[in-house]
Design a protein around this nucleic acid. Structure first.
Lengths: 207, 180
DNA sequence: ACATTACTTTGGAAAGC
DNA sequence: GCTTTAAAAAGTAATGT
């Protein structure tokens, strides 16, 4: 009767409030990361699907929002690392990774591992590198993938090394430190991938 | 020749008594750490065999780090004797149950993790987070970590036999993936 | 440029928060 | 869910020489 009616109002109120909070968080994080509108909308769809399937139970709204954004970025081929999303949200990378896996499984989101090539445009432009360097880096990564040199390695590290090599080859060298900075990896990692790529792909990088 | 399987860790549980005073036990066993604020169990490390034992107030005990069930048994017998000699009431021949085993092996081939992740159900492969592919098998119910080198880690094992079965299944599915 | 140490992942039990 | 324990895989990271 009246009680039931009131409870329904309360429940829908709470649901509305939660959704509003989630969407505002989604807006805040996506704008902080400078993500395009279609990525944000994609993340919003993923979040709504999660709500409909009751996947939020036992999880924080922020965690699910962050995981939805992470998934949307990958699906739209404009990946952000877990560290970047963890920094922009107030959720730690462990929880985002765990929630992402959970959402992927429950919502049947099938994503292949992030292709290092998808990181090239963003990293290259942040380094102010011309299109030719970008193309060269992508070409290197395609060859690397064919030879299995990307398997098991972190996508950002391989992408960073390819960009570093391409920048040197085309005469607009960026230091390992600069590339490491924008890619969010250490110089040691770039050096390791650099060795691997130049050796196995017979690339002469003479300075 | 089948790939050699090496058991690298065995986790075992048992019960050696009741209402054990861990403060007292901490004084009896030398390499014992007991910080109830941090963890309810007492930690005791043995050098031979090289294992770690977790002893609880209830008398329940966990033993980790052993290379075999026998090794874990020896370790548990050791602390039982020490406690008994110190005048603590203990169960002399407790039933010891294997809770988990970890094994490593080499497939002898370098699998394409991307292809496996794409075609095999129950797999997770996120190189950004971890270089190995995670493969959950239903029978035997274990988890296998497969690396690009062909090395694998099998965990969740209750017996050595399951490790062999799991390994054979993995080799079979990888062969199927390679053909398709 | 090297080396060493340490953390990521997986599984399971224990008692308590 | 977390806390603690051990061990392996390969990659990445933090520090040290």
């Amino acid at each position: 009767r009246l009680r039931k009616w009131q409870r329904r109002i309360r429940v829908s109120d709470a649901a509305e409030r939660n959704l509003a909070f989630a969407l505002s968080e989604l807006d805040r994080i996506t704008s902080k990361l400078g993500l395009p509108r279609h990525v944000r909308e994609n993340a919003a769809i993923i979040y709504r699907n999660a709500v409909e399937k009751g996947l939020i139970r036992g999880r924080s709204i922020e965690g699910v929002v962050a995981a939805a954004i992470y998934a949307a970025c990958r699906r739209c081929r404009v990946p952000r690392t877990l560290d970047e999303i963890a920094e922009a949200s107030r959720v730690d990378r462990k929880e985002i990774g765990r929630t992402y896996r959970f959402l992927a499984r429950e919502l049947n989101i099938k994503l292949t591992p992030t292709n290092p090539i998808d990181y090239v445009p963003r990293f290259a432009s942040e380094l102010g590198l011309p299109g030719e360097v970008e193309s060269k880096a992508i070409q290197i990564l395609q060859q690397a993938t064919e030879k299995g040199l990307t398997s098991g390695r972190g996508p950002t590290g391989v992408a960073a090394a390819a960009i570093y090599i391409a920048s040197v080859l085309l005469g607009c060298r960026r230091t390992q430190r600069e590339v490491a900075e924008v890619a969010g990896v250490t110089e040691v990692t770039i050096r390791n991938r650099y060795k691997e790529l130049t050796e196995h792909l017979d690339i002469d990088v003479t300075l | 020749m089948e790939p050699e399987i090496k058991i690298v860790n065995v986790v075992v549980s048992t019960k050696i008594g009741d209402n054990i005073d861990l403060e007292e036990v901490a004084l009896i066993l030398e390499n014992a750490e007991y910080e109830p604020e941090q963890f309810p169990g007492l930690v005791c490390r043995l050098s031979v065999p090289k294992v770690a034992l977790l002893i609880f107030r209830s008398g329940k005990v966990n033993c980790t780090g052993a290379k075999s069930k026998e090794e874990a048994e020896i370790a548990i017998k050791k602390i039982i004797k020490e406690l008994k000699d110190a005048g603590i009431e203990v169960i002399e021949n407790p039933e010891i149950k294997i809770q988990n085993m970890v094994a490593t092996a080499d497939l002898g081939i370098e699998p394409n993790l991307d292809d496996i992740a794409l075609m095999v159900e129950g797999t997770e492969y996120e190189p950004e987070q971890f270089p190995g592919l995670v493969y959950r098998l239903d029978d035997p119910k274990v988890v296998v970590l497969i690396f690009g080198s062909g090395k694998v880690v099998i965990t969740g094992l209750k017996s050595e036999e399951d490790a062999k079965r799991a390994l054979n299944k993995i080799l079979e599915t990888i062969k199927e993936v390679q053909e398709l």
